[in-house]
């Protein structure tokens, strides 16, 4: 069952095209990872998917009654705004103490309810955001670079938590990340984005795709950690616009 489908999606900002010709879909229960270099339109795509920006072209179709749990890239809370974790979880829809406690346990941080949001560490903060996203019993969990600022063990643990949540709740998960090795091992599909969809498919297919390797190079330890053998064939590809190529030996 399709949760979200886009056809020919384009988003234009004044002076530049952030996304064009994006055909994308995510099905019930899937884990899909979007990878791409900085400025490749990953966040723009997410924002278009949740309806925060209107497409300049093409269409975005969401399943009727689709419930989305959204974990944003970063959230700055003004120090002038006092708010406890429990109160934060109750926005915008009030939840019971039991519900917020369940959500915090699900995210692996059962003891934070009474703490001030501004007093949390980076990892705790992200888990509270994750807990919040699960409160609406979502069909789809969307995480935008959710492990930015976490160290390697921290983000690995975070991703294990997400897999556990998917097992328990049966929701689909859409990730945006640059930490390719951790993410890709858990994904059903990977979409490689650079203003448009460069390539997509199962993680091993994408990792060996010339388009992907042209974008990320073979020197990125992440891809190599998963796929030991080296590709020595030609990685040129036929996109009309320049990508940032890393040297491939």
């Amino acid at each position: 069952m399709r949760l979200i489908t886009t056809k020919g999606l384009a988003v234009r900002h004044p002076g530049h095209v952030a996304l064009h010709d994006v055909d994308f879909h995510i099905d019930r229960g899937e884990i899909v990872t979007i990878v791409g270099p900085n400025g490749s339109g990953k966040t723009t795509l997410l924002r278009a998917l949740i309806g925060a920006i209107k497409p300049s072209d093409g269409m975005v179709e969401r399943m009727a009654g689709l419930r989305i749990g959204y974990v944003p890239q970063k959230l700055h809370i003004e120090p002038t705004l006092p708010i406890t974790v429990e109160r934060f979880l109750s926005l915008p829809n009030r939840v019971t103490r039991a519900q917020s406690q369940t959500a915090l346990e699900r995210a692996g941080v059962p003891n934070l309810g009474k703490r001030q949001m501004t007093s949390l560490s980076g990892g705790q903060f992200q888990r509270v955001l994750l807990a919040r996203a699960t409160l609406s019993d979502p069909d789809l969990l969307i995480l935008d670079e959710a492990t930015q600022g976490l160290d390697q063990p921290g983000s690995a643990a975070f991703y294990r938590q997400i897999e556990a949540i998917r097992r328990d709740m049966g929701c689909a998960v859409l990730l945006v990340s640059h930490e390719l090795h951790v993410v890709m091992s858990a994904s059903d599909r990977v979409v490689c984005l650079n203003g448009h969809v460069c390539c997509h498919g199962a993680p091993d297919v994408v990792a060996s795709a010339p388009e992907y390797r042209a974008l990320f190079g073979s020197g990125t330890g992440g891809a190599l950690a998963l796929y030991r053998h080296d590709h020595h064939h030609n990685h040129d590809h036929d996109h009309p616009h320049p990508h940032t190529h890393e040297e491939v030996e």
Binding site: R47, A52, I68, P72, L75, I77, F88, L91, P92
Partner: peptide, 11 residues
């Protein structure tokens, strides 16, 4: 909406 316009939108 004050905490995060994106979270508001998603909600």
């Amino acid at each position: 909406a004050t905490l995060s316009p994106d979270l508001a939108q998603a909600g």
